[in-house]
């Protein structure tokens, strides 16, 4: 499916669903399904289309919210999650492992962005940014864990059925 129209369409679908899902839950601070979707899409559709979808998602965020330094982090952190999922999926045998991965990712989310902010505003601002965001990281990590534990398996089954029926195809 490399460079095919189908892959381009799939990338469009993936990025659109992620953007819509993020937007739908944006009124609740740090509770999101983006992490779940990136993990799910990586395991179902593969590395390449999901990586492209993450780039489109990050760019769309800039178009919606305007440019900000924290958005630079999006171009790094989501691909990192996708790569981690891709390489760990052969070791992780159930949704429990992915829930743990998503939970840890949420807990460390603020720390990563604090590092990015430090590059622009200095180390003290970065430390302040991280400390201030710890309650949000806790909520983010725990909610990711619960969401992935509850939704990964049913969504995975649904997407696998779509793939089996030929409605959607796996990427490379």
């Amino acid at each position: 499916m490399r460079n095919s129209v189908k892959e381009i369409a799939l990338i469009g679908l993936l990025s659109a669903t992620i953007t819509a899902a993020k937007f739908a839950l944006s009124f609740i601070p740090n509770i999101e399904v983006v992490t779940l979707l990136f993990i799910l899409y990586t395991t179902v559709f593969g590395l390449r289309p999901t990586l492209f979808a993450s780039l489109i998602f990050s760019t769309t965020e800039i178009l919606i919210y305007g440019f900000s330094t924290w958005l630079i982090g999006y171009y790094i952190i989501w691909p990192v999650l996708i790569l981690l999922t891709h390489f760990l999926q052969y070791r992780i045998k159930s949704e429990y492992g992915f829930a743990f991965l998503g939970g840890l990712f949420g807990l460390l989310f603020g720390l990563f962005f604090a590092l990015v902010e430090s590059c622009f505003y200095g180390i003290f601002y970065g430390i302040s940014y991280w400390i201030k965001g710890i309650p949000f990281d806790i909520i983010h990590g725990v909610s990711n864990f619960i969401i992935i534990l509850s939704l990964y398996k049913p969504l995975r089954n649904m997407l696998d059925n779509f793939v089996k029926s030929g409605f959607l195809k796996k990427g490379s």
Binding site: Y96, A99, G103, I131, I134, P135, I138, I139, G141, V142, F145, I146, L149, S150
Partner: peptide
């Protein structure tokens, strides 16, 4: 097992938020 893990995760979040508010 999942329900138990979810309850444990919520309790852990509550404990961590308490520690943050109390000490940090």
């Amino acid at each position: 097992k999942k329900i138990l893990l979810i309850v444990l995760a919520i309790v852990l979040a509550g404990a961590l938020l308490f520690v943050y508010n109390k000490f940090m």
